[in-house]
Amino acid sequence: MEDFSDDQLVKLAKQGNLEAFSELAGRFKQKIYNTILSFTKNHQDTDDLTQETFVNAFKSLKNFKQCSSFYTWFYRIAVNLTLTFLKKRSREKDRDVYSEDYSFHRSGEASNASPERYSLKMELTERLNKAIDSLPLLYKTPFILVVFQGMTHAQAASVLSCSENTVSWRMHKARKMLQTKLKLYLEGG
């Protein structure tokens, strides 16, 4: 199964082959998990949503017409589920949402960096995390897909069911907001 292409696996999975679907799930689970975690910042919710994404994908696989790539279709399910969840969560204002410290952190910190510089970088990273988190979902979603997941504007547009130009404008606005929020730190660092 490992040698099979995504399309071949999709065809097999559509015929009810569980092994093929497991292989597909294995290929995408890490990316899907990371994307959802970028939104929720919470392991438990991410776990639930990732499971739900795969179960939903399995259920609606028969309706997948292969007009778009499986990767895009899969992401669309994950993003839609996550956005619905986040909107629901934001409505439950009174409820105490359990949140873990799953903020992103810099990888491979240079151990040879001076303590002052390291401290500045850490602060900027923390500020960046908060700034990204505070973006409205409309701008945060394409930002996560393009910057964190490395998608092109066309791929992100396909996932979000909008035009490439819309993605481009939202990316521009998201960056403008981030720049305004981090201006002091950027110029100071």
């Binding site: 998990y33 952190h105 810099r106 960056r175 720049q179 981090l182």
Partner: peptide, 21 residues
């Protein structure tokens, strides 16, 4: 200057990693 700032943000954002699973 705007370009420089955005490049810094972009680099930092790309280097952000999720916790190890």
């Amino acid at each position: 200057l705007y370009d420089e700032n955005l490049e810094k943000i972009h680099e930092d954002a790309q280097s952000l990693k999720v916790p190890h699973i």
